[in-house]
Design a protein around this nucleic acid. Structure first.
Length: 941
RNA sequence: GCCGGGGUACCCGAGUGGUCAAAGGGGGUGGAUUCAAGCUCCUCUGCAUAUUGCUUCGCAGGUUCGAAUCCUGCCCCCGGCACCA
C-alpha cells in the first residue's frame, strides 16, 4: 500500500501527544508566554460545526505559537451551569447534575477526536463547587466593598423561564434565551454596580484589539451621556425634583417638568387631589407593561397635570409639573425638564397639551430671537432670550458650562455623566447556578456566609418545576444566623451564569488551586489573554461582564491586569444553503427542497442560512470526521473562508479538500524518491521554500489563517509541480525543506504532519513539540532567481494568449515561435524612468529628462518621445517591485529565454523556439515595435 | 433617525492608488496520463484582437499622468442602538 492510500491514524497520534504531555502549559522563564483561549462552551451533548470552526481557529494559533517557541496556555472547560440542563431535568426527569455530567462526557469525547491541543489538566466546569465557591467568595467581598447591593425595584421577569433577567438579557422585549415575553415585576434582588465602572469600561475600549463593530456595540450598551443633574424646587413643598439633562444650555427654555408615573414624588403630589385618579390610571397602564412595549408606545404620548408647580432653579419662575408616560423611571433620575423649543419629544407634548414654547437658542449667530418655531430646533445654537445677564450669545459647550457654573453657584445642580447601562441584576430564581451566599436573619438582615463555610453547595433534595427549586429544600433553607446565632433562612436565589464566565479565564491560569481562586503571580504571568476567539453573540453580555469582573477583581487586589482580552476575533457563522422563497422573503426548512413554497406556491430558490436545527440545514461533525478524518474537516474549515467571515458549507469543497489531503499524504514518499541529480532549478526551489516559510509566518502572525493554509497546502504543491516540470528532482533539496513544510502543515492538519515528520530521517520526536527555525530572509540573489523564473511563467502565459489569434491568421496550428526581445533602448528608457520616479520625480517632469538622455539624441528622437507618452509611461507604473528590480538588474532577457527555449517549446508543443533581439540584424519579424522590457513579442509560424 | 460593517466575474470570496481583466477556491471547459474509472498534471472560463484594445468591481459625478482602491452625493443589504432626557 502506498502512503497515499494509507489513512492517517489520527487517534494514535492524539494518544502520542497525550503521552508526551506536549500541551501541558508550564512556565519556562526563558520563553515568552502566549494565552490562547476560546469562549468556553455550554456542554450540550453534541459538538456542532460552530464549535469545530471556533476550535480549529484557536488550535491553529496555539500550535503556531508553540512552533515559534512560546509557552502556550490553551485550556478548555465547560460553562456547565444554566437553564437547559435544568429544563431537561424537568422535562425528562433526572437531575441537572447528572444530565450535565453526561453531556460533558459526550462532548468532551467529540472534541478530543478533533485532536485540539488543549491542556486538559486544567479543565474546569462551572458547576464544580471548587469553582463556584469562588463566585461566592467574590460576592461576599463585593458585599463588603459595596459593589453588591440588594434593591427592591422593578425588574424584567421572563414568564417561561420563571426568573428575572438582567437588562442586557432582554432582546427586543423578549428573553435572550427562550424568546419568551418579558414583563415587569417589583422584587428584592441582588445587583452588582456595573455603572460605577462605566468610564473605565468605555476608556478601556481604546486600549484593546477588539473589532470595530464590537467596540461600537459595547459603546452603545454603555451609553455614556454627559450632562447635568438639576434640582427644581416645588412650590409649597420642601422637596426637590432632580432631573438629568444633556442640554443644560436650554435650561431657560424649560416650560414644564415631567415625572415618570412611578417616580416616588408623583404619587405624593397628587394624592387626595382631583388629579389623583388620572395619575392612577396612567400608572396602572404603564406599570404592568414590559419596558419594551412601553417604549414602543411612547409615540402615543400621554400626560397628566399634577396640579403643582416647580420652581425654576435659576429664574425662580413657576412651571407646571406633569406626569408623562414617556419618562422612564430607571433612566437618569426618572424626571426630565421639558424644553419644547429645542427637543422634539417635549415639543410634541407641549403642543398636545397647550404648554408654552419658549425659544432660547438660535441656529445662526445673530439670528432672530423672536422667530416663530414650527418645529423643535434641536441642534446646538447661540443662547438668546436669557432672563439673566451673561448668557446670550454663548454657544455649545461654552453655553452648557456657563449654565452649569450658575447652577453650581446657586447650589441647584452640577455636571454629571449618566450611563444607560444599569446595575447588573444577578439574582435568578432557578436551581442550576451558584447559590448566592447570604443568610437572611430577622434581626441582622442579609448576612454574608462566612468564608470558612464556603462553598454553599447546591442541595440534591429539591423539587423541580414548581417555582424556585431551592425553596423546596428544607435542609438547605434552615440555617442559623452567622452573626447572632438565631434561626434564619438562606437566600434561595442563585447567580446569573454569566458570573461563571466572567472570570473563568483567570481560573484557567491556576486551575488546580484549592487555596485560592488563583495565585496572583501566576495569573499576572499568563494574563491577559493574547488571542480570544468566539462568536459575536457575546459582544454585549459576556464581553462586558468579563471586562467588568476583571476590573472588580483587580480592585480586590487579586490580579494586576485592567483588561482580560487583548485581541478578540469573532469567528463568522457556519452557513449552509436552505430553500428560500423570493416573493415571501422567507427561508424554509430543507424538507421543502424541490417543492413549491407552502405559502405562495411559487418556485423556491435557495439561500445560504445559518446552520440550525429548525431549518434542518445542519451538518454533523461526527459524521464528517468519520468519513474524512479530522484533518480534512479542519483544512476545509480554515480554507473555506477567513476566520471572521461567514462560511458556506459545501460538500463538494469538502471533498476537494479531502483530495488535497490524500495527495499530501504521499508527498514525502514522492519527494524522497527523487535522485541525487542537481539542476539549475534547485536554487529556485530553495529560494521559493524560504519565501514560503516567511510568508506563512507572516500570515499566521496576523491571524490570516486562510492565507497561511493556502500557502502550506496549496502554494507549496504548485511550487513543487513547477519545479518538477522544469526538470528538478534533487533529493537533497527535498530533505532540507520537508521538515519546515511539515511544521507549516502541522498548524492546520496536525495528524498528517506527524506522519510526515515520522517519515523523515532528520527529525525526531513529534512535530507538535518542535520549534520552527526561520530561514534567513531572502537574499538579492534569491529574489533575482525567483523573478527570472516568474519571467518564464509570464512569457508562457502571454504566448498562450496570443496563440489562438495567431493560428487563426496562419490557418493552421503553429509549429514554431520567435520571441522578439525588446530593443535595448526601451530598457534604457525604462531604467531611466524608474530611477527618476524612484527618486520621487513626477512622471510629467520626466520628458525634459528624457530629452537630455543619450538614447534620445538620434534621428529617432520624435519616435521615442511618442513612445514614452503612449507606451512606456503607463507601463512604468505597472511593473511591480520585483519586475522593476529585474529590469534594472543585469538579467539578460535573451539569454534567460534561450536557456529555457527547449522548455518553452515543450510547454507550447512547438518544434522550434527562436529568440532574437528586437531591431537587431537577426530580427526579420518586423514586430519589435510591440516588444517591451519583460514582454517580448511572440511571432508564430 | 443614529452608529458600525458591507455591495467585486456563474457562485463563494481576496484585493484599499499603478504589480488589476482583478488572487484563491467551487462549479464549468478542453487536453495529458490510464485498458478503464479514480487520482494526478496542464489549459481555458468578460468581449475583441497577430500581441495588451474595449467594457467591467452597487449607481452618478469628482480628484489624479493613473481609481475596484481616494473624495462627494445617492441606492441597496447586514448588525446594533433608538422619544435615553
Amino acid at each position: 500500500m502506498s502512503a497515499e492510500t494509507t489513512p492517517v491514524d489520527e487517534v494514535g497520534w492524539q494518544k502520542q501527544w497525550d503521552e508526551a504531555e506536549l500541551f501541558h502549559a508550564d512556565i519556562h522563564s526563558d520563553r515568552p508566554k502566549f494565552y490562547c483561549l476560546e469562549m468556553y462552551p455550554y456542554p450540550s451533548g453534541k459538538m456542532h460545526m460552530g464549535h469545530v470552526r471556533n476550535y480549529s481557529i484557536g488550535d491553529a494559533v496555539a500550535r503556531f505559537k508553540r512552533l515559534m517557541g512560546f509557552d502556550v496556555l490553551y485550556p478548555m472547560g465547560f460553562d456547565s451551569f444554566g437553564m437547559p440542563a435544568e429544563n431537561a431535568a424537568i422535562s425528562e426527569g433526572g437531575h441537572p447534575h447528572d444530565i450535565t455530567e453526561r453531556n460533558m462526557a459526550s462532548i468532551t469525547e467529540q472534541i478530543k477526536r478533533m485532536g485540539f491541543s488543549y491542556d486538559w489538566r486544567r479543565t474546569l466546569k462551572s458547576h464544580d463547587p471548587r469553582y463556584y465557591k469562588w463566585n461566592q467568595w467574590f460576592f461576599t467581598k463585593f458585599m463588603e466593598n459595596g459593589l453588591a447591593t440588594r434593591e427592591f425595584s422593578p425588574v424584567n421577569w421572563c414568564t417561561s423561564c420563571n426568573t428575572v433577567l438582567a437588562n442586557e438579557q432582554v432582546k427586543a422585549g423578549r428573553c435572550w434565551r427562550c424568546n419568551g415575553p418579558v414583563t415587569q415585576k417589583e422584587m428584592n434582588q441582588w445587583f452588582l454596580d456595573l455603572p460605577s465602572y462605566g468610564q473605565e469600561l468605555e476608556d478601556g475600549l481604546d486600549t484593546i484589539g477588539f473589532p470595530e463593530h464590537v467596540k461600537s456595540l459595547q459603546r452603545d450598551w454603555l451609553g455614556r451621556s454627559e450632562g447635568a443633574n438639576i434640582r427644581f424646587g416645588i412650590v409649597d413643598d420642601e422637596r426637590d425634583i432632580e432631573v438629568f439633562t444633556t442640554r443644560p444650555d436650554t435650561l431657560f427654555g424649560s416650560t414644564f417638568v415631567t415625572l415618570a408615573p412611578e417616580h416616588p414624588l408623583a404619587e405624593s403630589l397628587v394624592v387626595g387631589t382631583e388629579h389623583e385618579a388620572a395619575w392612577k390610571a396612567l400608572y396602572d397602564e404603564v406599570a404592568s407593561m414590559a419596558e419594551f412595549d412601553r417604549i414602543k408606545n411612547m409615540n402615543k404620548k400621554k400626560g397628566v397635570f399634577s396640579g403643582r408647580y416647580a420652581i425654576h432653579p435659576l429664574t425662580g419662575e413657576h412651571v407646571p409639573i406633569w406626569i408623562g408616560n414617556f419618562v422612564i423611571a430607571t433612566y437618569g433620575t426618572g424626571a426630565v425638564m421639558a424644553v419644547p423649543a429645542h427637543d422634539e419629544r417635549d415639543h410634541d407634548f407641549a403642543k398636545q397639551y397647550g404648554i408654552p414654547i419658549k425659544r432660547v437658542l438660535v441656529m445662526e449667530e445673530g439670528g432672530d430671537a423672536d422667530a416663530a418655531m414650527d418645529k423643535a430646533e434641536v441642534d446646538l445654537g447661540w443662547m438668546v432670550n436669557s432672563p439673566l445677564e451673561g448668557f446670550d450669545g454663548l454657544y455649545g459647550s461654552e453655553a452648557k458650562q456657563a449654565v452649569c457654573d450658575a447652577l453650581e453657584k446657586a447650589g441647584r445642580g452640577s455636571q454629571t455623566i449618566n450611563w444607560k447601562i444599569r446595575p447588573w441584576l444577578i439574582s435568578r430564581q432557578r436551581y442550576w447556578g451558584t447559590p448566592i451566599p447570604v443568610i437572611h436573619c430577622d434581626d441582622c438582615g442579609p448576612v454574608p456566609v462566612p468564608e470558612e463555610d464556603l462553598p454553599v453547595e447546591l442541595p440534591r433534595d429539591v423539587v423541580f418545576g414548581q417555582g424556585n427549586p431551592l425553596t423546596t429544600s428544607e435542609s438547605f433553607l434552615n440555617v442559623d444566623c452567622p452573626k447572632c446565632g438565631k434561626p434564619a433562612r438562606r437566600e434561595t436565589d442563585t447567580m446569573d451564569t454569566f458570573i461563571d464566565s466572567s472570570w473563568y479565564f483567570l481560573r484557567y491560569t491556576d486551575a488546580l488551586n484549592d487555596e485560592a481562586a488563583f495565585e496572583k503571580t501566576i495569573a499576572n504571568h499568563w494574563m491577559n489573554v493574547d488571542f480570544y476567539c468566539g462568536g459575536i453573540e457575546h459582544a454585549q453580555m459576556h464581553l462586558i461582564y468579563a471586562r467588568f469582573m476583571t476590573k472588580a477583581l483587580r480592585d480586590l487586589g487579586l490580579v494586576d491586569v485592567d483588561e482580560p482580552f487583548n485581541e478578540l476575533l469573532c469567528q463568522g457563522m457556519v452557513n449552509k444553503s436552505a430553500p428560500f422563497c423570493q416573493p415571501c422573503g422567507i427561508t424554509l426548512p430543507t424538507i421543502y427542497e424541490g417543492q413549491p413554497c407552502p405559502h405562495c406556491d411559487s418556485e423556491l430558490g435557495s439561500r445560504s442560512a445559518k446552520m440550525s436545527k429548525s431549518l434542518g440545514n445542519t451538518v454533523s461533525p461526527e459524521e464528517m470526521i468519520e468519513r474524512y478524518g479530522a484533518d480534512t474537516v479542519r483544512l476545509f474549515i480554515l480554507f473555506a473562508a477567513n476566520p471572521t467571515a461567514g462560511m458556506d458549507w459545501s460538500d463538494a469543497a469538502l471533498d476537494a479538500n479531502h483530495r488535497v489531503m490524500v495527495q499530501m499524504r504521499g508527498m514525502p514518499e514522492q519527494l524522497l524518491a527523487w535522485s541525487e541529480t542537481t539542476s539549475p532549478m534547485d536554487g529556485w526551489l530553495e529560494a521559493r521554500f524560504s519565501q514560503r516559510v516567511h510568508e506563512f509566518v507572516e500570515a499566521m502572525e496576523t491571524y490570516d489563517l486562510r492565507r497561511a493554509v493556502e500557502i502550506s497546502h496549496y502554494e507549496v504543491i504548485k511550487d513543487i509541480n513547477w519545479y518538477v516540470r522544469r526538470g528538478g528532482q534533487n533529493l537533497d533539496v527535498a530533505r532540507r525543506w520537508l521538515p519546515a513544510w511539515a511544521q507549516m502543515v502541522s498548524v492546520s492538519t496536525p495528524h498528517l504532519a506527524e506522519e510526515w515528520w515520522a517519515a523523515l530521517d532528520s527529525t525526531s520526536g513529534l512535530v507538535a513539540g518542535s520549534n520552527l527555525s526561520l530561514p534567513e530572509s531572502l537574499s538579492e540573489a534569491h529574489v533575482l532567481t525567483l523573478s527570472g523564473e516568474q519571467y518564464i511563467r509570464d512569457i508562457l502565459d502571454q504566448a498562450r494568449k496570443v496563440r489562438n489569434v495567431a493560428e487563426r491568421h496562419l490557418g493552421e496550428p503553429a509549429s514554431k515561435a520567435t520571441f522578439v526581445v525588446s530593443p535595448e533602448w526601451k530598457r534604457e528608457m525604462a531604467t531611466a524612468a524608474l530611477s527618476f520616479i524612484g527618486e520621487g520625480g513626477h512622471p510629467k517632469q520626466f520628458i525634459p529628462v528624457l530629452q537630455e538622455l543619450p538614447l534620445a539624441q538620434g534621428e529617432r528622437k520624435g519616435e521615442m518621445m511618442g513612445f514614452w507618452g503612449k507606451k512606456m509611461l503607463p507601463q512604468v507604473f505597472k511593473w511591480d517591485d520585483a519586475s522593476r528590480a529585474v529590469i534594472c538588474s543585469a538579467l539578460d532577457e535573451a539569454s534567460v529565454l534561450s536557456a529555457a527555449s527547449a522548455f518553452i517549446a515543450d510547454e507550447l508543443q512547438l518544434s522550434e523556439v527562436i529568440i532574437v533581439l528586437g531591431e537587431s540584424e537577426a530580427d526579420d519579424t518586423g514586430r519589435a515595435g510591440s516588444a517591451m522590457p519583460l514582454s517580448p513579442a511572440v511571432v508564430y509560424a
